[in-house]
Simulated scan of single mutants.
Amino acid sequence: MDVTIYHNPACGTSRNTLALIRHAGIEPTVIEYLQDPPSRAALVELIAAAGLSVREAMRQNVPPYVERGLDDPALTDDALIEAMLREPILINRPFVVSPLGVRLCRPSELVLDLLPPITRPFSKEDGEVVIDADGRRVS
């Protein structure tokens, strides 16, 4: 299965999502989007395919969001996209693309909807159980 993750290794949610993909036996294409941001067309497609609004795809808890006045509800989607392209830290993460769809995987276990069934136990890096010893999804 061909899977791509737009990843930030400094983010626990992104690390857990990547670990779940690998736990499924898949070595995904990893795009560290802070160093290699998506093109405008790719970003617009990711957001649309995930069924999100542009604002839902933005990180609103980072300094550039308020510092740049991006909290202004009058801003257009185009203006928000341009801001994300200029400052990729504003792109929420991790986005995952698989043949089963596109998702913003927050929380990380949302990636399970994009992968083949996993029945082996899995816990997040903080110890939270995602798949229990009986192979059942916990959440």
Rank of each mutant, 00 (worst) to 15 (best):
A83M: 09
A83K: 13
A83C: 14
M84T: 05
M84N: 06
M84F: 13
L85H: 08
L85F: 08
L85D: 04
L85Y: 03
L85W: 08
R86V: 02
R86H: 07
R86I: 00
R86S: 14
E87C: 08
E87Q: 15
E87T: 14
E87M: 07
P88D: 06
P88W: 13
P88F: 11
P88N: 06
I89W: 03
I89D: 00
I89T: 14
I89P: 01
L90W: 10
L90I: 13
L90H: 07
L90E: 11
L90R: 05
I91E: 01
I91D: 03
I91G: 05
N92L: 00
N92E: 11
N92W: 01
N92Y: 00
N92K: 14
N92F: 00
N92V: 02
R93P: 09
P94K: 05
P94C: 02
P94T: 02
P94L: 05
P94Q: 02
F95Q: 00
F95L: 03
F95N: 05
V96L: 06
V96K: 02
V96G: 02
V96H: 05
V97P: 00
S98G: 13
S98N: 04
P99K: 11
P99V: 10
L100I: 01
L100G: 07
L100C: 01
L100R: 15
G101R: 10
G101F: 03
G101K: 09
V102G: 00
V102K: 00
R103S: 15
L104N: 01
R106E: 05
R106P: 11
P107W: 14
P107I: 14
P107G: 11
P107E: 10
S108G: 09
S108Q: 10
S108M: 12
E109L: 13
E109F: 14
E109K: 10
E109M: 12
L110W: 06
L110C: 05
V111G: 12
V111D: 12
V111M: 11
L112Q: 04
L112E: 03
D113H: 14
D113L: 14
D113T: 15
L114W: 06
L114I: 06
L114P: 02
L115A: 04
L115T: 03
L115P: 04
L115S: 04
P116V: 05
P116I: 09
P116Y: 09
P116D: 09
P116F: 07
P117R: 12
P117L: 06
P117A: 12
I118D: 00
I118S: 06
I118W: 02
I118N: 01
I118C: 14
T119M: 04
T119R: 15
R120W: 00
R120N: 13
R120Y: 01
R120D: 13
P121V: 14
P121L: 11
P121D: 10
P121F: 12
P121E: 11
F122H: 09
F122P: 08
F122D: 08
F122M: 10
S123R: 15
S123G: 00
S123M: 08
K124E: 14
K124G: 12
K124T: 13
K124L: 12
K124D: 02
